[in-house]
């Protein structure tokens, strides 16, 4: 097993790091994120973050991951998705010819752009996509001002 996932050096992730989304477990001690959720994570699943008037929505790709193997935590404005992806179960004499899928422990931490209502967070895992809906705290919601 890989000791560490290779460093991501894409422009995308640099932009992400500026926004506070870290996908490199090694960088968790940096300013964006305060503490590693899973010390020995081997991969960081891709994710999207969106918002609408009432909610922040985080969607992560977790193909082959079972519901019971995902842990989500929210602390001090940091949302952490962690867990593990096991091997497909085949008969004992199966021989691997190609190995591209990422297996093992994963972890991803997002600094949420708004204060959220932690008691009303919901999460759903289906077709390999984890969708976490975080309602914005009342103070963080956009209020429309009527021009008189």
């Amino acid at each position: 097993m890989l000791a560490r996932i290779e460093k991501y050096q894409t422009v995308d992730s640099l932009i992400g790091e500026l926004l506070g989304f870290s996908r490199d477990p090694d960088s968790l001690s940096g300013s964006a994120v305060e503490s590693p959720a899973v010390e020995d994570a081997t991969f960081a699943p891709p994710l999207d973050v969106t918002e609408n008037k009432e909610e922040v929505v985080v969607v992560a790709e977790l193909p082959g991951v079972k519901k019971e193997d995902v842990k989500i935590s929210l602390e001090k404005g940091l949302l952490t998705i962690g867990g593990k992806r096991g091997e497909e179960t085949l008969s004992g004499d199966a021989r691997g010819l190609l190995r591209e899928q990422q297996k093992g422990k994963f972890s991803r931490t997002v600094r949420l752009p708004y204060e959220v209502n932690a008691d009303n967070v919901s999460a759903d895992l289906s077709d390999g996509l984890l969708r976490i809906v975080l309602p914005k705290a009342e103070a963080a919601r956009a209020h429309e001002i009527t021009v008189r």
Binding site: D12, G16, L19, F21, R23, P46, L47, D48, V49, T50, E51, N52, K53, V57, V59, E61, P113
Partner: peptide, 10 residues
């Protein structure tokens, strides 16, 4: 109505 803040998913 979603505004994308960060995108990696294909």
């Amino acid at each position: 109505g979603a505004t994308i803040l960060y995108r990696e998913i294909r």
